[in-house]
Each structure stands twice: as C-alpha cells, then as structure tokens.
Amino acid sequence: MAEPIRPGNALDEQIHLTAVDEFLAWGKEHSLFYLLFATACCGIELMQAGGPRYDVDRLGMIPRATPRQADLMIVAGTITHKMASRVRTLWEQMSEPRWVVSMGSCANSGGPFSKWSYSVLNGVDKYIPVDVYIPGCPPRPEALIDGVMALRERVRRYRTSGERDATPYLVAGGDCAFGGHPGKDDGSGGEPKR
C-alpha cells in the first residue's frame, strides 16, 4: 500500500519567508474593497458581478457602504453634471491610495447620451482620474472582472515598487456601440493596453 499523502511537517514547508512590503502588497491585492456606488443601468451588471454566478467576493472584493472604507470606486453608470460634484466628493473621501474603475460607455465618454443630452457628463475622467476603462453598454461581468484583475496587478506593483501607472488600462472586447473610446485621446488609437 502506498503511503498516504500528508502535509510535510519539515520546518521549511511551514514557514514562508518574504519581505513585509511583499506581504502587505499581497494582502492589499487580494482585498480590494469597492464602494457600493451605481448610478444607472451598469449598476445592475455590477450587482450581477457580485451575485453568486460571478461572485467577486472570491477575489476579496467586498462592497463597502462608505467611501472611507473603500479602496476602489467603480463608477457604474451615467454621471450627470449635477452628480459629478458628488462623485468628486465621494472620491475625495476615500483614503489614499484610491483607485477608480470607469465602467461602461456612459462613465467612459457619455455613451448613448454624449451627443444628444444637455445634462450628462461626457466621461467621469473630467472630474476624477481613472485607472481602468471598461467599454460596453453595459459591460459583461467578465469584462468587469478583467478590469479588476488588471487593476490588482497595478495595486501590487504600486505596493511593492511605489510606481503608479499613469496610463489607464482599457479592457478590450467591449461592445462599445456609442461614443468613442477614451483611449483615443492619449494617442493609442483606442487600442487596449495589455
């Protein structure tokens, strides 16, 4: 009979040596608490991402009801000019380092309202800096998770090396039917930055 497999009890199998910064970065990366903040239909998709099928809780993403406890703001939905100053206030209440995901065409560029509406802000990046853009109307939860995975990499890099990427990450493959990709403005031609 073969020996049953047991966890080794040699000392070097039970102790993992690392730097404190690495350890904290690992913890931060796996506990991106996000602000429960949705202004329009993209919010439904955000809720879906938190539901049992996609379950972003397993990535350590727990919704927080107050910006003071949140690391990440997912701007899910249409932002009007009137709402924009409130978005800015919420963002300012988050503690550093704070991260922003712009979810959906509306938050990216005004989306279906960009050319016809008097009241909609054409892109939340006019008020707050955005780290990840997710195109789509609305984006699928897979796209949101793709954006979050990219953001986690940035969080770890920031925590270990102190470098924060200035160029936003653009999730590819969204069905962005309305408006332009914000990535066009930065000379990338709207190509995804992988």
Partner: peptide
Amino acid sequence: HPLRKDYVYPAEYLGVAHLREGQHFES
C-alpha cells in the same frame, strides 16, 4: 429650461466642457 423646443445647449458647466473633443451636439 431644457425641454423647451428653443432650448440652447450649454457649452460647459462649472468649467467642464460639455462635449469631448471632436464631438458636436446633434440636437
């Protein structure tokens, strides 16, 4: 009053331009 047929669209609000570069209102 935005729902009036003769409403004139704002070019900016609180210093934030209403349109992204290269866009124009169609309404």
